[in-house]
Amino acid sequence: MVDIPEHLLKRAAQARAKALGISVEKALAEMKGQEDPTIVSKEPEVIAFEEVPTPAAETPAPVTETPAPVTEIPVPVTETPAPAAETISPVKEEHAAETTEKVAAVKIEQKPPAAKAPAPAKVDTPDEVDFAPEVKVTQRLLTVVKAKPIQKPVSEPVDKVNTWPHLMLPEFVSLMAMTAFLILLSAILQAPLLEEANPNVTPNPAKAPWYFLGLQELLSYWDPQIAGVMIPLVLGVVVWMAFPYIDRNPETHPSKRKFAIMFYTFFLAGAGVLTIIGVLFRGPGWNWTYPWIDGIWFDDLLDWIHFE
């Protein structure tokens, strides 16, 4: 008999007491009391075995694959038209190759058939521990764990594929394509380099990098110092960051978030138009020009777009 350290026993008793709403002492006593007869839980099953086969002997019942793993022990035995309880060994041989549980059950049978007092009714309670007691080891019921998952899965299982190769190959291909594209572009298009910087010579027009040109265009409509265009701009960035907290609509399908889609599309279109105007249609003095008439005043494109 395995000695369970006192402190573990106590902890188990506490848990049990908490679960059952009884006092710790009682739980402890219960558990210790159970130690001897009940917990040698195998015997009842042996009895069951002895009882069941008798009817089974007539009807070679098909193997009922009972889903409940614990109770299944008596069942497999049924399938052999076992000639009563005495012939235990043949049963054993036949089933030894099956699942370990069944083997376990068979082992139990070898235990003293001198079934003790505990009522055969015990068989029906599936919560009984059902390890095969090795030699003289007895099991003790510490607690009963209901057959429930500890964690509840909150999401449905999703259809997944292996990252390698299903994601990494496309990634690799697009990476290669991008590299090829960039090298090709760089071989064809020369990056601009104008005269050396000279603070005394202001080019006309002086343009920001293209990604700020929409903004520069916007600023040209209102004198920024007067109209304070930067205020909505800074606010805009903050709002943009906070956007997920503002848009509380949980839907993701475009048909259910028409406003958001429209909003962003207008934003995109506006930024695009302003940028294109800034790049192509603004000449000296920030006056409106037509690229096909007056040429382009945008030095980033200097060396590779010539409309003249």
Binding site: E195, P203, A206, A208, L215, M230
Partner: peptide, 18 residues
């Protein structure tokens, strides 16, 4: 450090000034 660089950055920096 060419004319493109210094003036684009001047424009951008001036915008930051607003």
């Amino acid at each position: 450090w060419d004319q493109l660089a210094i003036w684009a950055v001047t424009v951008g920096g001036n915008m930051a000034g607003y």
